[in-house]
Amino acid sequence: MTAPPRAERILALLDCLGEGEGSARDLLRRLGLPEQQLRSVQRDLRTLCDRGLLERSPAGRYRRPVRAVSLNPVEALAVYSAARMLYHHAAEYNEHYLRAMEKLSRQLPDRARRVAVLANEAYRARPNGEASRTFELAAQAWLEGRVLRCAYHSLQKVTPVELAIYFIELSPQNRQAYAIGVNRLKEGGRPFVYRLSRMREAALLADRCEIPEDFHPLQFLANAWGIMPGEPVRVELFFSPQVRDRVRETHLGQSAEIRVLASGHTRVVLTVGGWKELLPWVLGWGGEVEVLEPPALREAVAQAHAAGARVYGAS
């Protein structure tokens, strides 16, 4: 490979560090330069630091100087929360995710930025595998209006999918990413929900796809407890007095009916798109809640508690 002129290399270094921070070796890799160019890159970085265009951390990482921002405390907390959510959501390392977190981190005041930068360093150590690549392809398919092909590994079977993605959503329950769209290999043309971590052998097709103008993503998920829509089901729960305050603190949706009875119990009525996503949440309350409706959810909870009792030898 022919080495680029120094001026061109310096501009490329500044461009790279406009999207995040990195060591000299990181930058060598990002620029696609050979190993023998490492000393030249290090010399360029020292020059840029001397000119005040870059700063070097004690750990040997370079970055653009942090500019003053005009976020008020609540705005700063919102940006910080977004960076932390990215960190918790991404189980595998992805360079694009890291750059996004670094961009968010640079906007934060010192105290919040310190935590965010430490999280970015920890994120760098995560493994990089197929899930990261799948997420990249799914994002590209959605934003470019192209079809994503994959083998979808559900809990029951493996299904070929050619997916026109309408939107990508994170579940508020498990922080997993899901693609909502139409599998053109399946009859009916109805949108379904596909978990990205269950996609294998993903590939981007040249075929274009359009999102129907009358499709509204928020309406599609309007009655979902997490990410799965379905036929509305009425759920009635009866919480013990011991958890009254915890129930009051829990966000149950705007349509939830919550009433504290004279006995101290709390009666909650929800309407959700199917009860199966609700099951782990109900079980998390242990014996502090009784399911009154629907009968199928009540039976599922009873069976789960009975199985747990057998595991621990309880009568």
Results as ranks from 00 to 15, higher is better:
residue 97 Y to R: 07
residue 187 E to T: 06
residue 10 I to S: 04
residue 11 L to M: 13
residue 92 E to Q: 15
residue 8 E to G: 00
residue 150 C to H: 06
residue 274 G to E: 08
residue 284 G to K: 11
residue 169 E to I: 02
residue 148 L to T: 01
residue 91 A to Q: 06
residue 299 E to R: 08
residue 25 R to L: 07
residue 165 I to V: 15
residue 170 L to G: 08
residue 83 A to P: 05
residue 23 S to D: 14
residue 95 E to H: 07
residue 47 T to F: 10
residue 140 Q to Y: 11
residue 53 L to I: 14
residue 177 A to G: 10
residue 129 G to K: 03
residue 276 K to Q: 05
residue 38 L to R: 10
residue 105 S to E: 04
residue 300 A to M: 11
residue 173 Q to A: 11
residue 106 R to P: 04
residue 195 R to E: 03
residue 279 L to T: 06
residue 218 L to S: 10
residue 15 D to I: 09
residue 92 E to T: 09
residue 235 V to W: 03
residue 65 P to F: 09
residue 119 A to Y: 05
residue 191 P to E: 12
residue 237 L to G: 09
residue 259 R to I: 01
residue 118 L to I: 01
residue 240 S to V: 02
residue 288 E to G: 08
residue 122 A to Q: 12
residue 128 N to T: 08
residue 205 L to E: 15
residue 234 R to C: 07
residue 220 F to V: 11
residue 6 R to A: 07
residue 117 V to N: 03
residue 309 A to V: 08
residue 192 F to K: 10
residue 23 S to Q: 13
residue 100 A to E: 06
residue 121 E to Y: 02
residue 174 N to C: 07
residue 89 H to Y: 01
residue 12 A to T: 05
residue 249 E to P: 02
residue 154 S to G: 12
residue 130 E to Y: 09
residue 55 E to S: 14
residue 51 R to C: 09
residue 111 R to M: 11
residue 57 S to P: 04
residue 177 A to Q: 04
residue 235 V to R: 07
residue 180 I to D: 01
residue 132 S to E: 04
residue 285 W to F: 13
residue 36 Q to P: 00
residue 197 S to D: 15
residue 270 L to Y: 00
residue 202 A to Q: 09
residue 94 N to T: 02
residue 39 R to M: 02
residue 96 H to G: 07
residue 77 L to S: 10
residue 80 Y to P: 01
residue 125 A to G: 02
residue 150 C to N: 03
residue 164 A to T: 08
residue 16 C to R: 06
residue 68 A to M: 09
residue 263 S to E: 05
residue 101 M to W: 03
residue 57 S to L: 10
residue 304 A to T: 08
residue 200 R to T: 15
residue 215 F to A: 00
residue 252 L to Q: 04
residue 86 L to F: 01
residue 17 L to E: 13
residue 143 L to Y: 04
residue 166 Y to A: 04
residue 250 T to W: 01
residue 104 L to V: 10
residue 81 S to C: 05
residue 252 L to P: 03
residue 16 C to F: 07
residue 161 V to W: 15
residue 140 Q to E: 15
residue 89 H to L: 08
residue 171 S to L: 11
residue 163 L to I: 08
residue 71 L to M: 08
residue 73 P to T: 09
residue 234 R to T: 14
residue 59 A to D: 15
residue 209 C to S: 05
residue 313 G to N: 01
residue 12 A to E: 09
residue 308 G to Y: 08
residue 152 Y to S: 09
residue 56 R to E: 15
residue 262 A to L: 04
residue 288 E to M: 10
residue 244 R to Y: 00
residue 231 E to N: 01
residue 87 Y to C: 02
residue 311 V to Q: 11
residue 216 H to T: 04
residue 116 A to V: 10
residue 147 V to K: 02
residue 284 G to C: 10
residue 110 D to I: 15
residue 167 F to K: 00
residue 52 G to V: 11
residue 18 G to M: 12
residue 11 L to A: 12
residue 273 G to Y: 10
residue 52 G to R: 15
residue 193 V to R: 10
residue 218 L to V: 07
residue 309 A to T: 12
residue 12 A to G: 09
residue 147 V to S: 05
residue 165 I to L: 11
residue 24 A to K: 12
residue 75 E to V: 13
residue 160 P to W: 14
residue 251 H to I: 01
residue 275 W to R: 02
